[in-house]
Nucleic acid binder design. Structure first.
Lengths: 138, 138
DNA sequence: TATTATATTTGTAATCAGTACAAGTTAATA
DNA sequence: TATTAACTTGTACTGATTACAAATATAATA
């Protein structure tokens, strides 16, 4: 995927592919760490010294409205963003801090939710200890 | 469950059962709506006009440290609290705003998470449309 | 019970994420 | 090029949360 492809994708959704938006989008695509607005800001500032914090929020909002980015509800105090808008769950390891994605199969989802409830968005978040960290403390 | 039982429960966990803590705890037990700090504050103010916002945060933190209360990660901008510390999921209906709890069976949980990951805390949150609201728009 | 030490509550001030808004800039169109 | 609309920027503001110090209440001890 080149920057051109990304620009095209924004245009298809009615978004002007400005350098700032592309920088935010590409940061989210290449860093699957679900960063906060401020983390994105610090990173893109290196390329665009005039980048404004407000532009981070504006860009992220535009990308979310276009369905390319989503908020992940994994923190009760700060918004974290994800460049993968498809539904999926997250696990965070308390020891190494790593964030793992996983799939949420349709049938499991259906088995979980109250009967008749139609799910539109998922936020599934587990905290625990990953395999590697368990091994290293055995 | 009487207030005395609740007081005893706090004491067992090493918490002094002050009137303020009991008011916060009992509000959370009797209102399963996962309120914010401010919602709790408004409610308890009626009984204790001198109640301070800071005391809400202090009490909730003490109760959380004691394992009696937890934060539910259903909102990236504000903390919501739950008097049920047991693991369970939440569904919010976009139309009527209702928040439904549901169980998360062990075997489903195991099937979901990456192999070897040991889950310590769950935050499962679905947004969608509940059965009643679907019916009323049919 | 009186005294002392400790824990808790309170109110104010500070912090920090996010938003509103207006002015400046860029890009698109005629 | 002139005009218009979209976007970015910086500043000011809001609102949730935390820090802190003084006041109060509780528990422990004599």
């Amino acid at each position: 995927m080149t920057t051109n492809d990304h620009a095209k994708r924004l245009q298809e959704r009615g978004l002007r592919p400005t350098p700032q938006r592309l920088a935010v989008y590409e940061y989210l695509l290449s860093h699957r760490t679900h960063p906060t607005a401020d983390t994105i800001y610090e990173a893109v500032l290196a390329q665009y010294p005039s980048f404004s914090r407000t532009t981070i929020y504006n860009s992220v909002k535009a990308l979310m409205d276009a369905g390319l980015v989503r908020v992940v509800t994994i923190d009760p105090l700060e918004q974290h963003f994800d460049g993968n808008p498809a539904d999926h769950g997250h696990c965070r390891c308390e020891r190494c801090g790593q964030l793992l994605d996983f799939e949420m199969p349709e049938d499991l989802l259906a088995a979980l939710v109250p009967e008749g409830f139609s799910v539109q968005q998922q936020d599934i978040f587990f905290t625990g200890v990953c395999k590697a960290c368990q091994a290293s403390f055995a």
